[in-house]
Amino acid sequence: MTRVSVTVDDRHLSALDGVVQGLRARGMQVEQVLDGLGIITGSVPAGTLGALSAVTGVASVDEQRVHRLPPPGAPVQ
C-alpha cells in the first residue's frame, strides 16, 4: 500500500463528500478528511496512485513523505 495525500481544488472545498466517494470508488482507503485544509489522506494499492487524479475535484495526488528529526542527543536539530 502507498500512503497518499489528496489535495482538493478550491471549487470542491464545500463538496468534500463527493470527492471522498470518488476516491473510494477508485480504490482509496480514506483515513482522514481534513475539512479545514481541503486535504484527504489515506492509502492505495501500490502503483494505482495515478488513478485518483481522474476524480472530479482533485487538484493533486502526492505520496506521503516521512519527516524525521535527529535523535534527542544530536547538537543540530
Binding site: 495525500s5 482522514q32 489522506t41 516521512v66 519527516h67
Partner: peptide, 22 residues
C-alpha cells in the same frame, strides 16, 4: 505530529495543521 522516535508522516502533520486552523 512526530512520534517519540522523531518521525512523522504528512498525514499527521496535515491533521495537526487542520486542528490548529479549526
Amino acid at each position: 505530529v512526530l512520534g517519540d522516535d522523531g518521525s512523522g508522516t504528512d498525514a499527521g502533520i496535515l491533521a495537526g495543521m487542520n486542528w490548529a486552523v479549526t
